[in-house]
Design a protein around this nucleic acid. Structure first.
Length: 617
DNA sequence: ATAGGGTTAG
């Protein structure tokens, strides 16, 4: 969108700059005026040979030439002020250029204040100005203002263009207001003069993908084909990336073949997304194949491609291989950046190797890499998981000194750390502090704190907090309800837990394996093993496969209720499905063996290493 | 309009 405005505005600037030069220079109607002019002109320069003063138009030309090079807010403001002092005032076009540059720096509020200054100086906006302004309001989640700017188009007798509507669609999607975005799209299709273009579809597709609605995205892809709007590389990349993120790698690869059949050549983004997908599935051979394939097409992996590899290796616990990958990068003159180092640092943290993680952090400090809020959050999380809260809190305090703002995720991390240590008061204080610092708690924050309260037997406070989050317009999801159901079970309120569980579907929520497991566990502890077993069947019927945990808790439930035979039946089933008894289940079975209540032939069966080699499939 | 890193429930 900005790119488009930029190119069109550049054309506008080019044409209008010749206009200013006409305005700024004397109009030469006759030879005599020309002579007078030339005489004055040269006399002027001879009198000041050392420091020629540029005419206003040249000054403006120079300014316009320099506009695209504005890289900081201060420069933008000073150029803007100089332009406001020029007489006659420059046209709106170079002002638009400044707004574009400032918007590129993501200083959207600054753009709006510059726009207001333009208004006070009597510079009338054109369509480009309004488009830029709408885009800024969209990024600031101020759709009301965006729409009122749209009204200005009509007031000023200007016509919105396709990109105006595209920007509005993007704004609504950023606020999660899909219906309104779709409404604009439908109006565009319905009206004759502003048909959606490839950007419109691209924007909508991005919104659908962000919501994880891949099938709707593909439907829209088909629709744009039907409407003779050729999908381009960006459109395909958007969907391929979304499919890869959801590990629907086969679908991603199919779309990849399809785009190539249609003559759309992939780029490094396409391959990076695909490699991400196959790596997440642990298909390293496939990743290697894709790497070879891209290089054979003269498409070379870049720092982002390598960062994906480093990150997924780390997440799989293969930190040594990740280190090797960083070495390869350096050999190939691809400088690891903050993201690469952050991924590696997280890899060490996941293994509890805080000394190594800190080494990477220090390396970043010493080699001039930018340490960002991610770096701190990752390290803080590492310490929290090691129950080293003092170190974590110290790092949190260190951030502001480096001009870094702890964000919602950073706070979530430390709130969780406190909760897991049973320090609920500290967690609550951090919860207040984050809001005082302008960081809004999100669904995860509430999940973390709710879980902490429930586990620390503060159910009534938890319910209060739940009401608070309902009051805000947060999307209460299945994770939140699962935590509450567990809280109720912990408090022994099985009946309430059951009511909440049964009420999920009326809220449009599907219990997942964890929800079932918690309910099953609650029922078992309450001695309701029969109902627990019914839930086991139910989850299967609803397409939610029981996992190893499900079997372990229900088997434990049966044994604890002296229903040994039913426990044995489920052990058989569990083993057949490739799951094994955990430590506490094994302990219970060994107890039974000691009491001669169970056939010793069962014992080798439940121990993973004994059946792993010949799983019945 | 497109690619990489951090937080949550058994």
């Amino acid at each position: 969108m900005l790119k488009m405005i930029k190119s069109t505005t550049a054309a506008a600037v080019a044409s209008s700059s010749s206009c200013w030069s006409r305005r700024g220079m004397p109009c030469l109607h006759s030879n005599s005026t020309l002579v007078v002019f030339l005489n004055n002109y040269f006399a002027f320069f001879h009198s000041q040979p050392s420091k020629p003063i540029k005419s206003r138009s040249t000054q403006l030309k120079q300014l316009v030439r320099d506009l695209p090079n504005i890289t900081n807010l201060g420069d933008a403001f000073s150029v803007f002020d100089r332009m406001l002092q020029m007489r006659p005032l420059p046209s709106v076009a170079p002002f638009n250029q400044i707004l574009i540059q400032v918007a590129k720096l993501k200083h959207y509020s600054a753009v709006i204040s510059l726009y207001n200054q333009m208004g006070m100086s009597g510079i009338e906006p054109d369509g480009y100005t309004l488009n830029i302004l709408i885009n800024c309001h969209c990024h600031l989640n101020q759709m009301g203002f965006s729409l009122s700017v749209l009204g200005n188009f009509f007031k000023l007798g200007l016509k919105p263009i396709v990109s105006t509507f595209n920007t509005l669609i993007n704004g609504f999607l950023l606020e999660n207001r899909v219906a309104e975005a779709a409404g604009i799209f439908n109006k565009m299709i319905g009206g004759g003069n502003c048909q959606p273009d490839v950007f419109t579809y691209g924007t909508l597709l991005k919104g659908l993908c962000m919501k994880g609605n891949n099938s709707a995205a593909i439907q829209l892809l088909r629709k744009m084909e039907e409407r003779a709007c050729q999908p381009n590389l960006v459109v395909y990349n958007t969907i391929i990336d979304s499919l890869s993120k959801d590990i629907l790698v086969d679908d991603a690869l199919n779309l990849f073949s399809e785009m190539m059949c249609k003559g759309v050549a992939p780029n490094v983004i396409t391959y990076t997304s695909l490699i991400h997908g196959v790596c997440k599935l642990g298909k390293w051979n496939e990743a290697t194949r894709l790497l070879h394939e891209m290089v054979s097409k003269n498409i070379y992996p870049d720092v982002r491609t390598f960062s994906v590899l480093v990150d997924t290796l780390c997440k799989e616990g293969m930190v040594l291989e990740a280190e090797g990958m960083v070495e390869i990068m350096i050999q190939r003159d691809i400088e690891p950046n903050t993201v690469t180092y952050n991924s590696l640092m997280d890899g060490y943290c996941l293994q509890g190797r805080m000394d190594k993680a800190q080494k990477v952090f220090e390396l970043m400090l010493s080699n001039g890499s930018v340490v960002d809020a991610f770096s701190y959050s990752i390290l803080i999380n590492g310490f929290c998981k090691q129950k080293m809260m003092d170190e974590a809190m110290m790092l949190l305090g260190e951030m502001s000194g480096k001009g870094l703002v702890p964000n919602t995720v950073t706070y979530n991390t430390v709130v969780d750390g406190c909760c897991k240590m049973g320090k609920i008061r500290d967690a609550q204080q951090l919860f207040s502090k984050m809001q005082a610092c302008g960081q809004l708690p999100n669904v995860q924050t509430y999940a973390i704190l709710l879980d902490g309260l429930c586990k620390n037997r503060q159910l009534s406070t938890a319910i209060q907090l739940f009401r608070e989050m309902e009051g805000k317009k947060l999307d209460v999801n299945i994770v939140i309800y699962t935590i509450l159901i567990e809280g109720l079970c912990i408090a022994g309120k099985i009946e309430s837990a059951r009511v909440l569980f049964r009420g999920l579907s009326s809220k449009g929520l599907q219990p997942n394996a964890r929800t079932y497991n918690i309910m099953i566990k609650g029922l078992c502890i309450g001695g309701l093993t029969c109902e627990a077993e019914k839930l086991l069947t139910e989850m299967e019927e609803k397409g939610c496969s029981p996992d190893g945990y499900t079997y372990n808790i229900i088997i434990q439930g049966f044994i604890n209720n002296n229903e040994t035979d039913r426990a044995m039946g489920l052990i058989q089933q569990m083993v057949e499905r490739g799951f094994s008894a955990d430590a506490s289940t094994t302990e219970l079975i060994v107890d039974l063996l000691c009491k001669d209540k169970v056939d010793p032939a069962l014992l080798p069966l439940i121990q993973k290493e004994n059946y792993e080699g010949n799983l019945p499939l």
